[in-house]
Simulated scan of single mutants.
Amino acid sequence: MVKKKKDDTTEEKILAAARKVFTTKGMAGARMQDIADEAGINKAMLHYYFRDKDKLFEVIFMEEANKFFPKINIIFESEAPLFEKIELFVNEYIDEMVENPYLPWFIMNEANRDAEQFFAKVWAMTKNPRPMKFLEQIEKEVKKGTIKRVNPLHLLLNLLSMTIFPFIARPMIIKNLKMSAQQFDEVIEQRRKEIPKFIIESIKK
């Protein structure tokens, strides 16, 4: 029996459809039938390419991680001034979260399920973030007296949490504050400036 060869065009069509469905319905709300319908194929064909939703999402996540983490490393390891790096970092993360709002939930779910195995797989297939130069740069600025005494790790964690948390808490924020999706998106765009401004104002002398 001749084994059927998978078609790259069909696979890309499935991945594009899955990204759209995951973005609009989230990881939990997306169904394989939704993805098959969006891709214009039957469910059996979808399962031939990807056996389940988790495997399909993993492929998408790894593709995004391979594009995203190198961009973050370029920022971390550049010779740009500290305040400029903070602005670039926030903008890059928001760009990624706007394009792929389901990623934080996926990472949290996988990390809670088996953090060691998940991150071992991620770092084996992608370039993991290398923040050491960024942390060292913060410490140098402290010693030079250009910024207030601040723990570099806490500064990095503040940047991450202030940028990512609204995407994780999006349903709660929209419901509790009675916001529309459009209003939420507008707030996120404002945060591109508000987060760096808040961080920089808190540390500069």
Rank of each mutant, 00 (worst) to 15 (best):
V150S: 04
A111P: 02
K133T: 05
P70L: 01
A80N: 08
K148R: 15
P70F: 08
N73T: 15
V122W: 00
L82A: 13
N112D: 12
T146H: 12
W105A: 03
T146C: 09
L153I: 10
F119K: 09
K148A: 14
N100M: 12
F89V: 06
E141I: 02
L88H: 12
N112K: 10
K121D: 15
F76I: 04
L155W: 05
V122R: 02
A115R: 14
F118P: 02
Q117M: 07
E96W: 00
F134S: 12
P101S: 09
D95P: 03
N73Y: 01
L155K: 00
L135Q: 06
G145Q: 00
E87D: 14
I107A: 07
K127N: 11
L156A: 09
V98P: 00
T126L: 02
E96D: 15
N128W: 00
Y93V: 09
L103E: 09
E141P: 05
N109E: 14
N73K: 01
Q137V: 02
I74C: 07
P131Q: 06
L82Y: 03
F76G: 10
I138H: 06
I107E: 12
K85A: 08
Q137I: 00
Q137P: 01
N91D: 14
E79H: 00
E110P: 00
E84N: 06
E87N: 11
E92D: 05
V122Q: 07
E77R: 13
P70H: 05
F134V: 02
L103F: 15
R149N: 11
I74F: 05
F118M: 07
P81L: 01
L156P: 05
Y102K: 02
F69T: 07
N151V: 07
E139P: 04
R149G: 00
D114P: 10
K121L: 01
E87H: 14
A80E: 15
Y93D: 07
F118K: 04
P81V: 07
N91C: 09
E79Q: 11
P129M: 06
R113P: 03
G145K: 01
Y93Q: 13
N109H: 07
N73E: 10
M108T: 09
K143F: 09
F69Y: 14
L153Y: 08
G145M: 08
I75M: 05
K121G: 06
E79M: 05
E84I: 10
K144C: 01
L103I: 10
I94W: 02
V142T: 13
K133L: 10
Y102M: 15
I147Q: 08
R130Q: 15
Q137Y: 04
I74N: 14
D95V: 05
V150N: 12
P104N: 10
V142F: 06
E92H: 04
E116C: 03
P70W: 08
E84F: 01
I147R: 09
Q137D: 08
E77D: 14
S78D: 09
L82F: 09
F106M: 04
E139F: 03
P129V: 14
F119Q: 12
P101D: 13
V90H: 04
P152F: 03
E79F: 03
P70A: 11
M132H: 14
K127P: 02
E77V: 03
L155T: 06
M125E: 15
V98A: 04
V150D: 13
R113D: 13
K148C: 03
W105L: 04
F83M: 13
K133S: 02
F106Q: 08
K148M: 13
